[in-house]
Computed example of a mutant assay.
Amino acid sequence: MNVALLGKKIGMTQVFDDENRLVPVTVIEAGPCPVTQVKSTEKDGYDAVQIGYRPQKEHRLSKAALGHFKKAGVEPVAELQEFRTNGDAELSVGDILTVEKFEEGQKIDVIGTSKGRGFQGVVKRYGFAGGPASHGSMFHRRGGSYGMCQWPGHVIKGKKMPGHMGDVRRTVQNLQIVKVVADKNLILIKGSVPGSRGSLVTVRTAVKNKVAKA
């Protein structure tokens, strides 16, 4: 069964594995996530489970949201998200999902919003080499020729140019869980994940995990 949890990125650190090798890890505080709604193909047209994260004060929510939580019998939360289950979910409204749904060595996907870099040029945004740095070239960190004079007479769609960098939704696939600390709702994941410290992330079972053939 596919499992997903909402969480918060704590930061990065390093741990030693069983073979005394240094492993860089990202610490994520995931869950507990109450199940607020279960959707089915017969009623909603598709199978999905809606989960919540991070307790929220009632006066910060709308009456519609409070009614939704009251119907589910769960405490109000600040974040809501749903994930597909393909009809194999053994979950009910009111269930609490925790990091115990995951185990060490498991492959997962992490979804988050990358850090915003503001307006950047092509050298930082795309890694352009730039031009000569001296001898009066007057061409240092520019992008070069962007369009054509006669035909087609405009900049081709998709041309790499200066612009807003970062602050986009990104998914990193097939990351490995190094350790699960259930009593503190922590997951230690090998490598880096999108987002800044404190940002919202989604941890789910890897959808493209390739199992090695014997």
Score class of each variant (00 low, 15 high):
residue 30 A to P: 12
residue 88 D to F: 12
residue 42 E to H: 07
residue 88 D to G: 11
residue 84 R to T: 15
residue 70 K to I: 13
residue 59 H to L: 04
residue 86 N to H: 05
residue 50 Q to V: 01
residue 12 M to I: 02
residue 81 Q to T: 11
residue 65 A to S: 15
residue 45 G to H: 10
residue 36 T to P: 05
residue 40 S to K: 11
residue 23 V to M: 02
residue 77 V to N: 12
residue 62 S to A: 12
residue 30 A to K: 11
residue 65 A to C: 13
residue 76 P to T: 04
residue 24 P to W: 00
residue 37 Q to H: 06
residue 39 K to Y: 04
residue 41 T to M: 11
residue 70 K to T: 15
residue 34 P to N: 08
residue 44 D to R: 06
residue 18 D to K: 01
residue 19 E to C: 04
residue 11 G to K: 02
residue 32 P to D: 09
residue 32 P to G: 08
residue 29 E to Y: 13
residue 47 D to N: 11
residue 58 E to H: 03
residue 59 H to W: 07
residue 38 V to G: 04
residue 20 N to E: 00
residue 57 K to M: 10
residue 22 L to K: 06
residue 67 G to K: 11
residue 47 D to I: 08
residue 45 G to N: 06
residue 49 V to K: 01
residue 16 F to Q: 00
residue 82 E to N: 10
residue 59 H to Q: 09
residue 46 Y to C: 09
residue 18 D to Q: 02
residue 31 G to H: 10
residue 41 T to R: 15
residue 58 E to P: 03
residue 22 L to Y: 04
residue 36 T to D: 11
residue 55 P to N: 03
residue 56 Q to P: 05
residue 44 D to K: 06
residue 19 E to K: 09
residue 69 F to V: 14
residue 62 S to M: 11
residue 34 P to F: 11
residue 81 Q to M: 15
residue 44 D to M: 04
residue 23 V to N: 00
residue 20 N to L: 01
residue 80 L to F: 09
residue 51 I to G: 05
residue 31 G to M: 13
residue 19 E to T: 07
residue 65 A to V: 15
residue 56 Q to W: 03
residue 54 R to E: 08
residue 45 G to V: 05
residue 85 T to P: 06
residue 16 F to W: 02
residue 69 F to I: 13
residue 62 S to G: 14
residue 38 V to E: 07
residue 88 D to A: 13
residue 22 L to V: 02
residue 23 V to S: 01
residue 23 V to D: 02
residue 75 E to S: 15
residue 45 G to P: 10
